[in-house]
Structures are given as structure tokens and as C-alpha cells.
């Protein structure tokens, strides 16, 4: 059975500037993921007025034929977390992932982001990508270790 795993984690700032992007495995070509995450921004904007208050989970944003599916999470401050999942083994159709499967992933990523922002030396400059070693390593840890049903 092919394994579902995270292919990429991306953080976009509230002005739509890219703050961070990590592909898994780390050596993959990032350009493809840049395009994918950029495309999700339209989905965020389109769905925003329809979203009920307080629910940050945008769920499945869209899926791409190669077996990639992008899921999104919008925080209260406008920062967007995007997780691209590789359902593996090709095959069309929606990935067999339950609703809210990725919630723990998003929560862990949001916690890591909060810890980053609480660092007094972090300059919350939207234009610069995130350079904090601790944050990047935490993102890597989440991305590499996640499997469906895995508790982070």
C-alpha cells in the first residue's frame, strides 16, 4: 500500500509574501512547490468570505493529478500554512484522507510559528524569509515524521 506523506510545508505571510518553504525529501525541486503554493493563495482569497468565523482549517484546497493535494490553514493574523501531501502511487481521485487528518500537523506548525514570533530577536518583517534554525528544524521534524494517524 502506498504511503501518504507530506511533500511540502509552506508558510505565507499575511501580505502573501513567502516566509518559508520546505520540501520533503529536502533535495526535491522546490520550484514546483513554489508554483503550487502560490496557486493556493487564490483559493484562500476566494473562500475567505464564505468561511464561518473561528474555523481556521480550510481543508483541501485542491488536488493535482500527480497525486499531490494541498491543504490550507489560515491563522487569525492572516498567516497561511500550506501542507502539500503526496498520496503516492499515482491514481486519480481524491486521497483517502479523513477530514481534519491534518489538523494536528497544522496545530504543531502553528505552535512552532508562535514560538518563533515570541523570540524577542525575531524581526517580524514580512519581506524576509524565516531564518530561525529552530523553526526550520521543527518544520523538518514534522514533515519527515508524519504519517496518517500519527500523533505529533
Amino acid at each position: 500500500m502506498s504511503s501518504t506523506r507530506i511533500a511540502c510545508i509552506a508558510i505565507i505571510g499575511k501580505n502573501n509574501s513567502p516566509l518559508h518553504l520546505s520540501p520533503f525529501p529536502a533535495t526535491s525541486n522546490t520550484l514546483k512547490y513554489h508554483f503550487l503554493t502560490h496557486a493556493t493563495l487564490d483559493v484562500f482569497q476566494a473562500r475567505l468570505p464564505l468561511k464561518s468565523n473561528g474555523d481556521s482549517d480550510f481543508g483541501l484546497l485542491y488536488s493535482v493529478d500527480e497525486g499531490l493535494a494541498a491543504y490550507g490553514w489560515l491563522t487569525n493574523t492572516g498567516v497561511k500554512i500550506i501542507v502539500v501531501v503526496d498520496v503516492g502511487g499515482g491514481g486519480a481521485g481524491t486521497p483517502a484522507m479523513k477530514d481534519g487528518e491534518l489538523k494536528p500537523v497544522f496545530r504543531a506548525l502553528q505552535t512552532a510559528y508562535i514560538q518563533l514570533v515570541c523570540n524577542p530577536f525575531y524581526e517580524n518583517d514580512e519581506a524576509k524569509p524565516i531564518t530561525s534554525k529552530r523553526f526550520i528544524e521543527e518544520v523538518k521534524r514534522i514533515g519527515e515524521n508524519w504519517t496518517p494517524g500519527f500523533a505529533l
Partner: peptide, 8 residues
């Protein structure tokens, strides 16, 4: 020093 990372 919670959450602190010294500048790099």
C-alpha cells in the same frame, strides 16, 4: 529566556 533564540 522562554522561546528565545540568540541572533545568528
Amino acid at each position: 529566556a522562554d522561546f528565545v533564540e540568540l541572533p545568528d
